[in-house]
């Protein structure tokens, strides 16, 4: 289960200005990796003592994040066009 790595924004206004902004979300995962590596043993220990529901919740939240890949939102109005794609 690979999470989204890039969120692509494109805003085109009627004055012909274009904002193209690829956001490298994978950098966020790289930054979070050390925290996750430290947190996993604590989470497993917590789960062994208090039940596995918290661990399941974290896992399902991660599944939810990973499932967002492929989402496209496109809005074309009179003033501007907005395009968002999660890759």
């Amino acid at each position: 289960m690979i999470p989204p790595s890039l969120v692509f924004f494109k805003i085109t206004s009627k004055e012909k200005s274009v904002i193209k902004l690829p956001i490298p979300v994978f950098l966020l995962w790289i930054l979070l990796l050390p925290i996750v590596v430290l947190a996993i043993p604590l989470l497993v220990l917590w789960s062994l003592l208090r039940g596995f529901s918290k661990l399941k919740m974290v896992f399902y939240f991660w599944m939810f994040l990973c499932s967002l890949k492929g989402t496209v939102v496109e809005v074309n109005s009179k003033k501007e066009n907005i395009f968002i794609k999660i890759c």
Partner: peptide, 23 residues
């Protein structure tokens, strides 16, 4: 004058969302 909207959402979100909803 209206806005044209196009939204595409993966159905995997529905599966993951239903699992989260159990909490």
């Amino acid at each position: 004058g209206g806005d044209k909207v196009n939204i595409r959402v993966p159905l995997q979100v529905l599966r993951a969302g239903m699992k989260l909803a159990s909490f």
